[in-house]
């Protein structure tokens, strides 16, 4: 049994907002009690709508912020601030927006080399450059791109640059924060294929954050569905997509438009909007929008549990499919 690349136990992150002289201090529960683990070479997809805490999770795992509660380990080392420096080369991130995630004032070469410059300052410049060129070839960039500025590239190529930068330290875990949502369909498939290639070649673990279920269905091994900062369902891709158990997952699957005009489905219509994360309902966070909610759902919070395919729901869907 191989050691998981990352394990997280009850990760939570709360922000305090307001708290000025005249306003009452409020707590935003951006992420509560997320637990998961990813094995080498596997992809865990985190799915959810805006405000579900998936980006906060990315910030915790990439060591940008500390969790307010809970713990996680990367390659067996606890992800506490004392270890951040040594863990940095194990985990890297690729962002959604290929236009904002590259420094426009730096050349492609120096963008890709930057992590090396920081983490291995004693490496000779020539070796650094040759490593960067190697990486560029791996992600499908051409050698002459080395001296160009990012503004000369299209979105897909920029995303390749971002991937090259993330991989140059040979991390074990890559956090992909909506890596293809900003790309056109024809480019999206190129980048997805590249990510799958690289995963096979480097035994990478991916934490794949996305709201696009059709992409997740394609790349993920395991799936965590989040709602308002809480994981509501967790399981293998086949289980979650094939037999979703949490009503929210069912609704999400049903709301995703399918590119098949002959399939007319009865969509489950969710009433209302996402509640504000400042004011998360007591009990099950999904209860106000759930069509099956009972009194118990509104007062008591269902726990996710540790089962292989778990749903935080008192009345999970049985074997019915969406």
């Amino acid at each position: 049994m191989t050691q998981p690349v990352v394990t997280a136990r009850n990760l939570s992150r709360h922000y305090e907002s307001g708290g000025g002289m005249f306003s009452q201090r409020q707590v935003v529960r951006a992420l509560s009690e997320a637990s998961f683990s990813i094995d080498p070479g596997k992809t865990l997809a985190v799915v959810g709508e805006s405000g579900c805490g998936k980006s906060t999770l990315a910030r915790l795992i990439t060591l940008i912020e500390e969790p307010t509660a809970g713990e996680f380990t990367i390659c067996g080392t606890p992800g506490v601030p004392e270890n951040w420096d040594s863990l940095r080369s194990q985990v890297q991130i690729v962002f959604q927006d290929p236009y904002g995630s590259l420094n426009l004032r730096h050349r492609v070469g120096s963008i890709i080399e930057e992590p090396l410059k920081i983490k291995r300052p004693d490496m000779p410049a020539a070796e650094r450059a040759s490593k960067a060129r190697e990486m560029m070839e791996m992600v499908g960039l051409r050698p002459e791109h080395y001296d160009r500025f990012p503004h000369m590239f299209s979105g897909g190529q920029r995303q390749r640059i971002a991937i090259a930068r993330a991989l140059i330290l040979e991390p074990k875990l890559l956090v992909l924060d909506e890596p293809v949502s900003a790309l056109d369909l024809s480019i999206q498939s190129q980048v997805l294929n590249l990510l799958l290639d690289l995963q096979e070649r480097m035994e990478l673990a991916y934490l794949f954050i996305s709201h696009d279920l059709s992409v997740v269905r394609h790349v993920a091994d395991d799936v965590v569905v989040m709602y308002l900062g809480r994981p509501v369902e967790r399981g293998s891709k086949e289980a979650v997509f094939g037999a979703p158990r949490h009503p929210y997952t069912v609704a999400l699957l049903s709301a995703t438009p399918s590119a098949d005009p002959t399939r007319h489905r009865n969509r489950i219509k969710l009433e209302g909007e996402l509640p504000s994360p400042l004011d998360i309902p007591a009990g099950c966070p999904f209860a106000p929008r759930c069509w099956k909610a009972q009194d118990r759902c509104r007062t008591e919070r269902p726990e996710l549990g540790d089962a292989a395919h778990a749903a935080a729901c008192f009345y999970p869907e049985g074997t019915e499919t969406a």
Binding site: T62, L63, I64, D85, R88, S89, V91, Q92, I93, F95, Q96, D97, G100, S101, L102, N103, L104, E114, P115, I118, K119, A162, R165, A166, L169
Partner: peptide
């Protein structure tokens, strides 16, 4: 911005 965050992830002081 994301590029600053990724520099931090790369370990920039």
């Amino acid at each position: 911005r994301d590029y600053v965050v990724s520099a931090r992830v790369a370990g920039a002081k």
